[in-house]
Design a protein around this nucleic acid. Structure first.
Lengths: 214, 214
DNA sequence: GTCTATAAACAGATAGAC
DNA sequence: GTCTATCTGTTTATAGAC
């Protein structure tokens, strides 16, 4: 078994939690170190002490995102599917897991706004998170798609198709303020997440059907 | 014919252009008024003079987004489709237009990052843009979907399905830094946009097929 | 309308006591 | 490791000349 990276503890962990929350909510530049320190129940100087400065804290937050998402992904990691049907079933499971994780309020509420901002920023944190998380995850999705359809896992078409599937899920999180308004959801809960998941699984099946080589 | 809102001119317009660009690129808080003024070729005080302050400029940028997107949408506005097939064809056209507008670099390069940040911020600008743009656009999409499938236009299922279709498109813009890395695109051009459009139209057809009531 | 100069508040980093 | 006090630079807003 692989050794999972251990969660930070103590003041450093408090600062990361506060940073993830505030950076995600208000943005990196808009969040002051004093605010972070207050939210973490400590003083401004501790940020420089533990992370070398505000930028160091930002990097540590990125690493924490990788660690937490890695833990979620590790839980649904499975050996390569034996048959096309098994691969299709595993795709559905991944989709449902993603929807539940992304749409239902919970721990991810700090991670996702943070990462969303880092994606639009397109800076060094995205570089790190991309190679540690997005790329491996996308590759695994492509491999499953290949096993389920018989298509090549490395083709541009397969890679784009996987992005189109992921995009469907992500929009329900990224565009939550818009979706919630239109759906009259005060805040999406378990029932709403399941409704979305069922629809997206149905879409997956429809698209899968078409791409399947027989 | 409806009177389209006129484009701002002069220094005010220069400031809005600069604000849209810089707010989108670096974020509202991270952009200084000096930087905006310099980019617009004027002085800091002109921001307070024309818009009452930095926040006023932000609002004006939001209004400009509504104006510009409204112009694009107005161009593909069409009378209600007569048949299911005509509605389906119009859905495809809307999808292609959206992909081209969103994915291909161009004028939208300033608008989209700006709006993306405003969506995650979930503040008063989003409120305004939602009712002026997102909601009417989504409703029109739902009406077309209803005409193409026979489903109810107001059902939760229809509204969610339309979001899933929109989500597919938007992710290719929102996640551009990630997609570009994985696809080895230095910067997506017309050819890449067409490749994405073909795939998403194929997805639309597959999903449409399933939902069609006969 | 445009611009310079300045005011008042706030930022991040750090020195040094404990 | 933790914290207070302070240094230095930058922010927005504004007063007032032109």
């Amino acid at each position: 078994m692989e050794q999972p990276p251990k969660a930070p503890e103590g003041t450093a962990a408090d600062l990361i939690r506060a940073g993830l929350h505030l950076f995600g909510q208000k943005g990196f530049a808009a969040t002051s170190t004093r605010e972070i320190a207050a939210s973490a129940g400590t003083n401004v100087a501790s940020i420089a002490y533990h992370f070398g400065g505000k930028d160091g804290l930002r990097q540590a937050c990125g690493a924490e995102v990788v660690r937490q998402i890695g833990a979620v992904l590790g839980a649904i990691d499975a050996p390569a599917a034996k048959s096309a049907d098994a691969a299709a079933a595993q795709l559905e499971l991944m989709l449902r897991t993603m929807v539940r994780f992304l749409v239902t309020p919970g721990d991810a509420d700090s991670l996702i706004p943070f990462m969303l901002r880092e994606v639009t920023e397109d800076g060094p944190i995205l570089d790190a998170v991309y190679s540690a998380m997005f790329e491996p995850m996308h590759r695994r999705f492509c491999a499953l798609w290949s096993a389920a359809t018989g298509q090549e896992a490395d083709s541009a078409r397969t890679r784009l198709t996987v992005f189109s599937l992921i995009g469907q899920v992500l929009y329900f999180r990224i565009g939550r303020p818009i979706v919630s308004r239109r759906m009259n959801w005060s805040s999406p809960g378990r029932a709403e997440a399941d409704e979305v998941a069922e629809l997206l699984v149905a879409n997956l099946r429809s698209i899968l059907e078409r791409e399947r080589l027989t």
